[in-house]
Design a protein around this nucleic acid. Sequence first.
RNA 1: GGUGGCAUAGCCAAGUGGUAAGGCAGAGGUCUGCAACACCUUUACCCCCAGUUCAAAUCUGGGUGCCACCUCCA
Length: 457
Amino acid sequence: MQVFNNLTRKLEAFSPKNKGFITIYSCGPTVYDVSHVGHARSCIVWDMLCRFLKFNFEDNLEPGQEAHKVIWIRNITNVDDKIVNRAVEAGISPDKLSRIYTHEFWSDMTALNISWPDLEPRATDFIREMIKFIEDLIEKGFAYEVQGDVYFRVHKHKDYGQLKGLSIADLEKGEARVDTNSKKENQLDFALWKAFPREEYSFDSPWGKGRPGWHLECSTMIKSILEDLNLGSTLDIHSGGDDLIFPHHENECAQSECLSDTKLAKYWMHNGMVMINGKKMSKSENNFMTIKDLLEKYSPSTIRYFALSTHYKKQINFSDEALSAAQTGFNKLLESISKNEKEKELDNALISSFRDAMKQDLNTPQALAMLFDNKDKPLTVSYLLAVLGFDLSQKTSAQGASLNSKFDSVMRLLLDIRAKARENKDFAMGDLVRDSLTSIGIKIKDNRNDQSEWEIE
RNA sequence: GGUGGCAUAGCCAAGUGGUAAGGCAGAGGUCUGCAACACCUUUACCCCCAGUUCAAAUCUGGGUGCCACCUCCA
């Protein structure tokens, strides 16, 4: 299998680091608000990767291949200034707020049929380990304390800039658009620990009350989990959105690699950003869409199909036109395979071409095209759709959330038909509608001005 | 200002040296009382210019356009 490794900017053959295991860490959400379509894309993509790895390395081994258990780790970031600010606004504790949005996130993930990660560490459960991590970095001379803050010395890491593909000198050339922080030895240095005077959410540390820097949690949790599993200190795959490459992932690399003297991850994979109507998704510019908004109009399968019909590394533009086309197209595929003659057994040639496409850095657009080309093989097509994470039990057009609004329209229609019948003195027809609805448990009420209303009993 | 990415039909999107997959929309047809559904058929010389090659959407150079990152972000 070939994957594009952002560390080398090349397509590389994927080979697991440890015998018997494949470890993947995906950067998860900061739980301070409802999840948006960017999270949806990212989660669908990495879910698809894990499902395919399981297909390829656990269940359908090729001759001579050893089985590997796939372990997917996705974190929940529940320490963050935004969480504290929101919590203060809402008048609840930051912990409560982050738990509320964690549940919101889970419900979105469930709706989208994203499989549960094998491990889902939360930042606050690893504060002690983070402090130890920082202490060790200070001891080794990679970090320094200033007035309750602790910063990482970027210049001490020889590979700094590797993920971004730049040298430290190059990075320094970039126009500094950040407020300069005079506490740092160097502007590129980043915080491992921030003094945090607010009582709402700070933790005791050797440097006083404060909170960990954002990048630290991933490094620490990866370290702890890999140690617990006895799998060394290098992940197979670290994944996340493009926007995380710098500085988030770069800094994770720096911390971890300076501490352990080994690579943090063998392969770095990044998904492209989501655009909405051709422009960057941005809350401040009011160009924004939540997963719940999207589920109002489109089925989970449509969203997955749409997300996978573009290669994961490319930008994807969520426009109504494209999503509607995806909905129509995918429903046609499902309808078609449900109507076709049943195959007796799986078509191995098709499975094999599908797998070849997927092995080429997850070429889902090509893999999906193959399914359209093989509508006459419903058994195999359904099987392969499941490999990509489609939940076919959701049925074609029974689009969960959009059902409600459609139901309203259908009821309106039935009432119109009944009104027409009564107008024509066809009371048998009118009563048929009313009595049938009543027997289903929907009560019809005719009010004075001939406006009928309904309610579910 | 620095860096990276992308540019394929009306729209979405594969293809990375051998003569343009697939989907949506459109057109024609089979089916149908008429439709819908399904099925069949059909629609592109790949942003521009120059070069390398027997051969380029695919490689090289130069343009143009769009986007992202450099600040919290999947």
